[in-house]
């Protein structure tokens, strides 16, 4: 197209229609919309500044530092929450109808699939968890021992229960223990 004649000088706002046509398709040569250009430039400038601040003025590790700090906070909160549940408290809870009802609700959602509504677990068809009402305890029968298993899971996870601490937390675990212990009597 080098030999096409020079287009006349443009007036303000006038649009060039390029001479060449491809299979009948012609093209205007409109100026780029300003808002569009500024969006592109803005994104480029933002990217340069962001990169500079994040990786060249800092070390770029803030995600890792943030999550490590958060994990440490979670652990601290868990330890603090556990402190208030000892055997006398849990036995007391096991006699409070409100707490038993709450514990039962949690039991139905999370525990019943393996331990069954009867709490008899694998001693009845369909159950795969331990029997919780037969008076024998694999890992100790005090409320705190039971609670420990609920929170941390069975020591033998290849055939025992998972840990529930992350899902239930200390309070809901204590309520479940209260519900289980309400089927037993304090010594």
């Amino acid at each position: 197209m080098a030999d096409t004649p020079q287009p006349p000088r443009l007036k303000r706002g006038q649009v060039v229609l390029r001479e060449h046509s491809y299979d009948g398709i012609q093209e205007f040569d409109q100026k780029l919309p300003n808002w569009w250009l500024y969006t592109l430039y803005g994104a480029i400038v933002f990217s340069i500044v962001y990169w500079f601040i994040l990786f060249q003025a800092n070390n770029g590790q803030h995600d890792i530092n943030d999550i490590e700090n958060a994990i440490s906070d979670i652990q601290a909160a868990r330890l603090a929450a556990l402190g208030s549940f000892d055997d006398p408290t849990l036995w007391q809870m096991s006699q409070n109808p409100t707490l038993i009802a709450r514990g039962e609700a949690t039991y139905v959602t999370h525990c019943q699939a393996c331990h069954l509504a009867s709490l008899k677990g694998k001693d009845e068809p369909g159950g795969i968890g331990e029997n919780l009402v037969d008076g024998t305890w694999k890992y100790g029968g005090t409320p705190t021992e039971v609670m420990h298993i609920v929170l941390k899971g069975s020591p033998d996870k290849a055939s025992g229960m998972q840990a529930w601490e992350s899902q239930l937390g200390a309070v809901a675990s204590a309520e479940v223990v209260a519900y289980i212990m309400s089927h037993h009597t304090a010594p």
């Binding site: 009948g24 398709i25 012609q26 093209e27 205007f28 040569d29 409109q30």
Partner: peptide, 15 residues
């Protein structure tokens, strides 16, 4: 698009 609309393309420069 330009074929069906029978209109020139909006902006070559933008292309």
């Amino acid at each position: 698009m330009p074929k069906a609309a029978n209109r020139p393309v909006y902006s070559y420069r933008l292309s």
